[in-house]
């Protein structure tokens, strides 16, 4: 239009340097953090750089990462799921107990577990969108109920706090191969969960960046009212996100079960926070609308490196939590600072 108008725009564009672009990537802070932690343990811990350690670190990262991916998507969509940790255990318990009580084929249990777990996720989303209560409250309720049910039902059915072994059942070897096998590449053992994890990161990234659903996820987390006003199905998007978390919980739960052959019903409490921390360290904005699946993977990798690095350095593992807290604070500060610099309105 007018010359003066165009000129003000040019000024703004000039200020968007490639460096600023890089800084505004959600995962930037976590990549810097991961490099720092890697260098730290490479120096401080003997054996951290050994090839066999790579498999160990990646395995630890993958068990967190499989859940951190859908939890990150949910957080980008503006919500939390505090029931994610115990839902993993519930999923394993349903699978194990259904197989044991009803049939002799583990795959039937695996299938039923998928349905039940997805139903719990859908219920989370349904209650949230119907009641319009904060997700903190809704999923805290689910968390407590599931924790109680995991223990209560297991004791009721099996008489103890752990399930009976299903190792001698039909389909156990194949299910074990899918969810808990080990692949050896170049003499290094890699758990199959690493492949699940990487596949989930790839799929989630594609959904976020290249599909309509991804656009909707960013929108419902960034400004729910605006999204609704332009016709985004907010309810459907949120329920879908909770079902995504449930799907992750199903994979993790089956891994938990088929790594051994029985499940401890009290497991999983507290893990929900670890998933959330991995997502936040990976650059997800806790208030929604910003973040990435790759970031959550880097966050999970930071976890894996720290938890195993401390072991390799032969320190007391109690210090793990201390590192975690410090990392969370630093990462959040860094992310906030980076975002402010990158998005400072002209």
């Amino acid at each position: 239009m007018s010359a003066t108008l165009d000129k003000t725009h040019d000024e703004r564009i000039l200020r968007t340097s490639p460096l600023r672009r890089l800084l505004s990537r959600p995962e930037f802070g976590s990549v810097v953090g991961a490099l720092a932690v890697f260098l730290f343990f490479a120096v401080a811990a003997d054996g951290f750089l050994r090839a066999s350690s790579l498999g160990t670190v990646l395995y630890a990262s993958s068990t967190i990462g499989i859940m951190a991916v859908p939890v990150a998507l949910l957080m980008i969509g503006g919500e939390f799921d505090l029931s994610a940790g115990v839902l993993v255990t519930s999923s394993a318990l349903v699978s194990s107990m259904f197989s044991y009580q009803m049939t002799a084929d583990t795959w039937v249990g695996v299938g039923v577990s998928l349905l039940v777990t997805l139903a719990v996720g859908a219920a989370n989303g349904f209650v949230l969108t119907r009641t319009r209560l904060p997700s903190f409250i809704v999923t805290l309720g689910t968390f407590l109920m599931l924790t109680g049910m995991n223990l209560g039902l297991t004791k009721l059915i099996d008489g103890t706090v752990s399930t009976k072994t299903i190792a001698d059942m039909e389909g156990f070897p194949s299910a074990h191969a899918v969810f808990a096998s080990t692949l050896t590449v170049g003499g290094v053992d890699f758990k199959i969960t690493i492949i699940w994890w990487l596949a989930l990161v790839a799929i989630a990234s594609w959904i976020l960046l290249r599909t309509r659903a991804g656009n909707w996820i960013f929108a419902v987390g960034g400004n729910q009212d605006a999204a609704r006003a332009v016709g985004v199905p907010v309810t459907r998007t949120k329920i879908g996100l909770y079902m995504g978390v449930a799907f992750g919980a199903w994979i993790s739960g089956q891994h938990l079960l088929f790594s051994y052959d029985a499940v401890q019903s009290g497991e999983g409490v507290g893990n929900e926070l670890i998933y959330i921390i991995a997502a936040v360290i990976g650059g997800c904005l806790i208030t929604g609308g910003h973040g990435s699946a790759v970031g959550s993977a880097v966050g999970a990798l930071l976890f894996g490196m720290t938890s195993k690095g401390i072991v390799f350095a032969e320190w007391n593992p109690d210090w793990f939590k201390f590192f975690l807290g410090a990392m969370l604070l630093l990462a959040t500060l860094l992310n906030t600072w980076v975002r402010k610099r990158a998005e400072a309105a002209a």
Partner: peptide, 19 residues
């Protein structure tokens, strides 16, 4: 007030809901 989602790129906002 409820025209846009601030953190999303301009082009994503432009097509939001009718992608």
């Amino acid at each position: 007030d409820l025209a846009v989602v601030p953190l999303m790129p301009v082009w994503r906002n432009f097509f939001l809901g009718s992608e």
